[in-house]
Design a protein around this nucleic acid. Structure first.
Length: 398
DNA sequence: AAAGCGCACAACCGCACGATA
DNA sequence: TTATCGTGCGGTTGTGCGCTT
């Protein structure tokens, strides 16, 4: 039995919002707030809209301090960096870009950035539709034709059926981005190749927590914390040219042997926040933090699958921050993020690993204690054996 | 001039998850 | 413990506009 619809679809208005509807919604929320119940809100105002629609309209358009229009180069780099690292978690990415909404970023990625970086054209609606009706195209298609509905992809992965078709478009695109970026280094001889991140670059990165003073976050923050990460940084300019250069080289050579300008290779710490439905919270949190390294012309990437786990763990367990740790429900707090061991390409050791060994196995023992000895095992031993496919499904296939 | 097409953006849909009764 | 509800999120679709043929 499916769940009941959130509203009576027959009686709600759909489609674009009129200025009058916008004014009604904005005036009410400015005056009274959302009241904590979006479903009931349209009735209170007298709007013939679904509560979810009202919420979306408010968050994406009417909310104060929303930024529309062109994305800056810096914003592009942040989006790209985080997309490679964590995939299509648009709300988390949006938390790093004050004034931008997840929807905006998602649209920008799908319509512009993806093409710019991967050097491919998004398939038109017509060609997509044609592919969907063509068994051959559907079976042999690239990333986009492999893209299923999220539910189907999740169900497939959860069932352990690791087939190439199970890879999400996001996972494939992240792999492609990694490969393109990796290609930047391989083109400059052994020295730069040794310094380059191995593909897939998943360096152990978690070092310390950045902490916010108690009460600095509003209560509607689902979870906002930051982690200071150590990660490879690639020069701004080299990244900006990565996609185009790769495409150019691809066209010239007909191979995947990409060329691009050399990039400097540095380490910086970065910040990463969790989604907060309140833009003010995100901004407040950002203001408290160390300056984002993106602003100084560097670019980061590669938190890897461990980070996804940490995200999920922190995101689900903790709602606010306090000094000395991340506050947990019930007053406890998380100690500094657990150290991860034996990442597949963790630093110099992994750089020396031969290509054949690169995807052999990795383990991540990560655990922490909080709240009076309660023990949480993030992930005991995660052996991802043998094949690129397994590795991808373990690390990127989400 | 008109049809076809690509693009950008807004909005919708359905699922997952946490809270709560 | 289970069912239900509200919310958040990511994927997808609808639509209008401008460019090309």
């Amino acid at each position: 039995m499916g769940r009941a619809p959130c509203c009576d679809k027959a009686s709600v208005k759909k489609g674009p919002w009129s200025p009058e509807e916008d004014a009604k919604l904005k005036a009410y929320i400015d005056e009274n707030g959302t009241g904590g119940n979006w479903i009931a809100l349209p009735q209170k105002i007298g709007l013939k809209r679904c509560g979810k629609s009202c919420r979306l309209r408010w968050l994406n358009y009417l909310r104060p301090n929303i930024k529309h229009g062109d994305f800056t180069e810096e914003e592009e780099h942040i989006i790209c960096s985080l997309y490679i690292s964590i995939g299509s978690r648009w709300s988390i990415i949006a938390a790093q870009l004050p004034g931008r909404t997840d929807n905006d970023i998602k649209n920008y990625w799908n319509t512009k950035l993806k093409k710019k970086l991967l050097g491919k054209r998004a398939p038109s609606r017509r060609s997509r539709a044609a592919a969907n009706h063509d068994p051959y195209l559907a079976a042999a298609g690239g990333a986009n034709s492999m893209c299923t509905t999220s539910g189907a992809a999740v169900a497939h992965n959860a069932g352990g059926g690791a087939t190439p078709q199970a890879l999400s478009a996001s996972a494939l695109e992240r792999i492609q981005l990694h490969m393109r970026l990796q290609g930047l280094y391989g083109a400059f001889g052994d020295e730069s190749a040794a310094a380059a991140p191995q593909w897939p670059k998943l360096e152990a990165l978690l070092q310390t927590n950045k902490l916010l003073p108690p009460g600095s976050l509003q209560t509607d923050a689902m979870a906002t914390t930051t982690v200071s990460v150590q990660q490879h940084m690639v020069d701004h300019q080299s990244l900006a040219g990565a996609g185009e250069a790769a495409v150019e080289a691809e066209q010239q050579l007909g191979s995947g042997n990409y060329m691009a300008a050399a990039g400097s290779f540095e380490r910086h710490s970065s910040k990463l926040g969790f989604y907060s439905p309140s833009g003010e919270v995100a901004e407040a949190a950002s203001a408290e933090l160390s300056p984002c390294p993106m602003a100084s012309g560097v670019y980061g990437g590669g938190f890897g699958p461990h980070h996804d786990e940490l995200y999920d763990f922190l995101y689900s367990k903790y709602a606010s921050l306090s000094s000395g740790g991340v506050a947990a429900h019930g007053g406890g707090h998380i100690p500094p993020l657990p150290e991860l061991h034996h990442c597949p390409d963790g630093g110099a050791a992994a750089a020396a690993v031969g290509a054949d060994e690169k995807f052999s196995t990795w383990t991540a023992t990560a655990s922490c204690e909080y709240d009076g000895g309660h023990h949480h095992q993030l992930q005991g031993t995660n052996s991802v054996g043998g094949s690129l496919q397994d590795y991808v499904l373990g690390g990127y296939g989400q």
